[in-house]
């Protein structure tokens, strides 16, 4: 999920060969709902703070990752562990 318009996300999807969904939130409505709008961080434009949220089938957050720097990401092992923990409950 990013503030990029669909066309930009489509190019990124094609370049990466990714099979997951790229949602566009150009107005940042969800960013505001989650308080993760980073104002003016991309050459004056707003972008999202790096965040990952795992949501279960009832729509509840089961795992949340907040980064302290743009270079820091949730590692696949950490994400898979959160998914396994969610599935075993």
């Amino acid at each position: 999920m990013s503030v990029d318009p669909p066309a930009t996300s489509r190019r990124l999807r094609d370049r990466l060969g990714a099979r997951f969904t790229f949602l566009s939130d150009p107005g940042g409505l969800l960013l505001d709902a989650l308080n993760i709008r980073h104002r003016g961080a991309n050459e004056g434009s707003d972008i999202a703070f790096p965040t990952a949220i795992l949501v279960d089938r009832w729509g509840s957050a089961r795992w949340i990752y907040e980064s302290e720097t743009y270079r820091q990401r949730a590692e696949p092992e950490t994400i898979f562990a959160a998914i396994r923990a969610m599935n075993t409950r």
Partner: peptide, 11 residues
Amino acid sequence: EPALYIFYRGD
């Protein structure tokens, strides 16, 4: 469906 939402800075 359960989902993982990853917010990134964009391309």
